[in-house]
Design a binder for these strands. Structure first.
Length: 210
DNA sequence: CGATAGCAAACTTTCACCGC
DNA sequence: GCGGTGAAAGTTTGCTATCG
């Protein structure tokens, strides 16, 4: 019987290993996060492989999640996010959006542009709230959409005000892959860009025109 | 081949007890 | 009252066999 070989399972599933938590809860949440990220439903074997869990373990945890609506099982017995996950996400998004609404309205009103609220999630920014511009020509970003931090304005804003150590770690993980011909792929150039964003941010904070 | 169940072992949690 | 320790109970897990 060996369980020591499951130590890297969280990294395989894309999450961080829990520090001193309940192992089964950590594993269950790994599965939840895996299914939430997957564009297609996954079978028990795929879930087990991605998380580093034994098939039996993955199956038991999936059954527990299914019994409470966190996952649903398709006709072909593959698993996908369930209604509970959907409700929780919707509730969470609504709480954040409600709290941010006055600030977004003010930003949209004063700038005449679409105001977006985004949160940092790993090497990506996730749109969690939005007040659209009234102008006919406007940018379009869907709430819930994930975008890379290094190739989007919202991502740069989120990263610009982090500490240097955090930025270095983030760049190491991101790798700055090119998405378009104009994507910044050089870390030094990206840091310069972040400095510009910071200067602009401080200027706006002082009430100066951009 | 993938899903499921049984079993034994390992692990976690709870609780009582003790010393400070 | 608080923290540390050990035993018991409960839970979780991997291996393996079986089923569809």
């Amino acid at each position: 019987m060996s369980r020591a070989n499951e130590g890297t399972s969280a990294e395989l599933a894309g999450g961080e290993p829990a520090a001193g938590g309940v192992q089964s809860v950590d594993r269950t949440l790994q599965i939840v996060e895996l299914l939430a990220r997957s564009p297609t439903p996954l079978g028990v074997v795929a879930v087990a492989e991605a998380t580093g869990l034994a098939q039996a373990t993955a199956h038991r945890l999936l059954q527990a999640l299914a019994s409470r609506g966190w996952v649903r099982q398709d006709a072909d017995r593959r698993y996908a996010p369930g209604i509970t996950m959907f409700r929780l996400g919707e509730t969470s998004q609504r709480h954040v959006a409600t709290a941010a609404q006055p600030f977004l309205l003010e930003a949209a009103s004063s700038s005449g542009e679409t105001a977006n609220l985004a949160m940092l999630e790993g090497t990506h920014a996730v749109y969690v709230g939005q007040v659209p511009s009234t102008q006919r020509l406007r940018t379009f970003a869907e709430v819930g959409h994930r975008v890379p931090i290094h190739s989007t304005a919202v991502g740069k804003v989120l990263v610009a005000f982090l500490g240097q150590a955090e930025i270095t770690a983030l760049l190491a993980r991101s790798g700055l892959p090119a998405r378009t011909a104009t994507t910044i792929t050089d870390p030094d150039r990206f840091r310069t860009e972040l400095a510009s964003v910071r200067r602009l941010g401080y200027a706006l904070d002082r009430g100066e025109e951009a």
